[in-house]
């Protein structure tokens, strides 16, 4: 399979020297994100995140299934990340690359293990029926900072998602179709966000946010911090690379908190806008909106 083109020596020297002089190739400040756009689809549970030239699409779906035998009171929640050759020909189908493994582990730790989604609320009949919530993450275009974008897309899609309403009468479980009853949102506990820091220089003294693919290829080390707006760290991953002073990592954590709060506000605002758009004039408008499609 074709390999990702590596930056040439000149390019490498140019970018690194520019960073040492306090400049980024695209003229951003070191702690500035690229243009971030979040769009929701016509269906519930579709979120499309554009971060500069990076583009990620998350799609949430739900179905009723049997729970795992060892966890009869929990629903099933999975996040699938399969990078297709669409993002880069270097990604091969059915052969996960390191990027893919790390991305899926990170999302798993950030969203699933931090209990962002209350899996107990997905239980319908203990030990027999539960909801299985599945997030499919599609990377459409990869130009760096896949992790922050993907995490935002996954969290946004899950918060946007509505699952079919259910009711239990005696022993019978009824799952209502969207036409019968308005679908209900998932029971959501907190919204974690990933912030990736890239380090440059001999001792990792230069710190960048939202690195592009070129910058990512040249970094000496990186640190990914996931946290929610309450200041709870869900995960930190500085997986090797050039050693960095402990103090600057603590600075990273506080910078991540500020950025996480910004992302959280943005997401709340977008969700509110979307629900307003859907709810224009109540139920009637919703029907006509469907007709337009």
């Amino acid at each position: 399979m074709p390999r990702e083109a590596e930056p040439s020596l000149n390019e490498r020297a140019f970018v690194v020297q520019a960073l040492q002089e306090g400049l980024r190739l695209d003229g951003r400040a070191f702690d500035q994100f690229r243009g971030l756009d979040l769009k929701f689809g016509d269906h519930y549970g579709v979120a499309d995140v554009t971060l500069g030239k990076t583009r990620v699409l998350a799609n949430v779906s739900a179905e009723v299934t049997a729970p795992y035998i060892d966890r009869p009171f929990d629903g099933i929640f999975t996040i699938t990340t399969e990078l297709s050759p669409m993002a880069s020909p270097a990604f091969e189908v059915n052969r996960p690359t390191e990027t893919e493994v790390l991305l899926s582990r990170l999302l798993e730790k950030t969203v699933r293990r931090s209990n962002a989604l209350d899996t107990e609320s997905l239980c319908l009949i203990a030990g027999q029926k539960c909801w299985s919530i599945r997030v499919d993450l599609h990377v459409l275009s990869h130009d760096g900072n896949l992790i922050d974008g993907s995490c935002l897309a996954v969290v946004a899609a899950l918060r946007h998602f509505r699952r079919p309403d259910t009711s239990i009468e005696g022993e019978t479980l009824t799952v209502y179709t969207p036409a019968e009853r308005e679908p209900v949102p998932l029971s959501w506990l907190h919204s974690p966000f990933c912030i990736t820091f890239s380090f440059y220089g001999e001792e990792g003294e230069i710190m960048l946010l939202d690195a592009t693919l070129l910058e990512e290829q040249l970094r000496v080390s990186s640190c990914i911090i996931s946290l929610n707006k309450h200041g709870e760290i869900c995960q930190i991953a500085k997986l090797g690379g050039t050693p960095v002073e402990a103090v600057s990592l603590i600075q990273c954590a506080s910078a991540a908190l500020t950025k996480g709060k910004e992302l959280s506000t943005l997401l709340d605002q977008k969700l509110a806008e979307d629900s307003k758009r859907r709810d224009k004039g109540g139920l009637l408008a919703e029907l006509s909106a469907e007709n337009e499609r």
Binding site: R113, S114, E232, I233, T242, P243, V247, L249
Partner: peptide, 28 residues
Amino acid sequence: ATLGATDKVAVLVCESRVQVSRLEGMMA
């Protein structure tokens, strides 16, 4: 993971929920 007796951090992995304010104490 640190480099010898210095404060340079090569690996920092946290997989559980914790307040940001506690990070410094734990790292020290």
